[in-house]
Nucleic acid binder design. Structure first.
Length: 339
DNA sequence: AGCTACACCTGATAGC
DNA sequence: TGCTATCAGGTGTAGC
């Protein structure tokens, strides 16, 4: 579900509540929401996805997560692509630890009053005390459990540039400063997010390098947009939308896209991400919501995604829907010709 | 190295 | 009503 714009809406919403707040309590209701959390003591040696946690292993993780997170002070949340993290600070100084969050397909970070009733699918509750805003509850809810929280080690970025976006307001668009004044992002990134590329709205994103890598591959351009090691933050919705804007067929091999067209595609990616951001992200149902549980409006602005069988807003031809890696690609067969 | 298939989950909806 | 199949915004890993 949540792609870059949705995760950024959540990150920005979390910032005023968590920055400077102390964790006063942690309760793991479902240990499966800690898939990425590796306990220090009693490590079961089983990590990552595609591995079913035994209930014993899940209990070890839960206990470790609760023990180590309780009592810490949190800093300003950061984001790269679809990964988000909140650094653990001590006496105002960053430590080597961060609370890492990935929302997967259905994850939500909800800010609620301390004693508010639970939302559906809450897996982890974190009680925080903010010096300015008082006591709040940060709930991680996730229907499908593809998302997770973890305590993860912060490592140096390989290029020495900031690890991700940190700002007091919502990121506005390609390489722009935040609305509320940019925070100083340290050159650190959680180890588990360090393998993904920078996202297209990161000022340090290397356009030429990306273009070169994309044009060296025989894979379809949609699969390349979704490859988080080439460019992060793009998912099924915005891949389809960017390709529609660029008039590119999703199965066009990377090496068949000319240099000019590749630059154009990147421009469309930035444009669609920026527009979605300004409209609060894309919500089809209750699955994607901001920290207050509210939906975004960008679903009204989609041209291709989810519109199979409808008329192309540009040429009127019928939008096609074809299988793609266990889900679907949506495109206009007339304006997005295979080349 | 690059690519595909699949595993990890729950729930909504459609069709019988 | 109740069963089964299909679909959903993501990612990591096994295996060819």
């Amino acid at each position: 579900m949540p792609e870059l714009p949705e995760v950024e809406v959540v990150r920005a919403g979390l910032a005023p509540a968590v920055d400077g707040a102390r964790v006063v309590g942690v309760e793991v209701l479902d240990g499966r929401a800690l898939k990425r959390h590796v306990p220090i003591v009693g490590d079961d040696g089983r990590g990552g996805h595609g591995v079913t946690l035994t209930s014993e292993a899940a209990a070890i993780r839960a206990a470790d997560f609760e023990r180590r997170l309780t009592g810490v002070v949190l800093g300003a949340p950061a984001r790269r692509g679809k990964f988000m993290w909140i650094p653990v600070v001590s006496a105002g100084e960053a430590t080597h630890l961060a609370l890492l969050a990935h929302l997967g397909m259905s994850g939500q970070m909800l800010l609620r009053a301390h004693e508010a009733a639970d939302d559906r699918h809450v897996r982890i509750r974190i009680w925080i005390d903010n010096p300015e805003h008082g006591e709040l509850r940060l709930d991680f809810a996730d229907q499908r459990l593809f998302g997770s929280l973890a305590l993860d080690e912060l490592v140096a970025t390989d290029d020495g540039a900031p690890g991700g976006f940190v700002g007091n307001g919502l990121l506005r668009g390609a390489g722009e400063a935040s609305a509320g004044g940019a925070g100083v992002a340290p050159a650190l990134i959680p180890a588990q997010a360090s393998h993904i590329a920078r996202d297209p709205l990161d000022p340090e994103f290397n356009d030429a390098r990306w273009a070169e890598r994309l044009r060296s591959r025989g894979t379809g351009v949609k699969a390349l947009l979704l490859d988080q090691s080439l460019v992060s933050g793009i998912g099924n919705i915005y891949a389809d939308e960017a390709l529609w804007r660029a008039r590119l067929h999703p199965e066009t091999p990377g090496r068949a896209v000319g240099p000019r067209k590749v630059r154009e595609l990147l421009g469309h990616v930035r444009e669609v991400l920026g527009q979605a951001l300004s409209e609060g992200g894309t919500s089809f149902d209750e699955q994607y919501v901001n920290v207050n549980g509210q939906a975004g409006y960008f679903a009204h602005s989609l041209n291709a995604y989810g519109r199979g069988g409808e008329a192309c807003p540009r040429c009127g031809a019928e939008i096609s829907r074809i299988p793609f890696g266990g889900r679907s690609s949506h495109f206009c067969p007339k304006c997005q010709r295979q080349r």
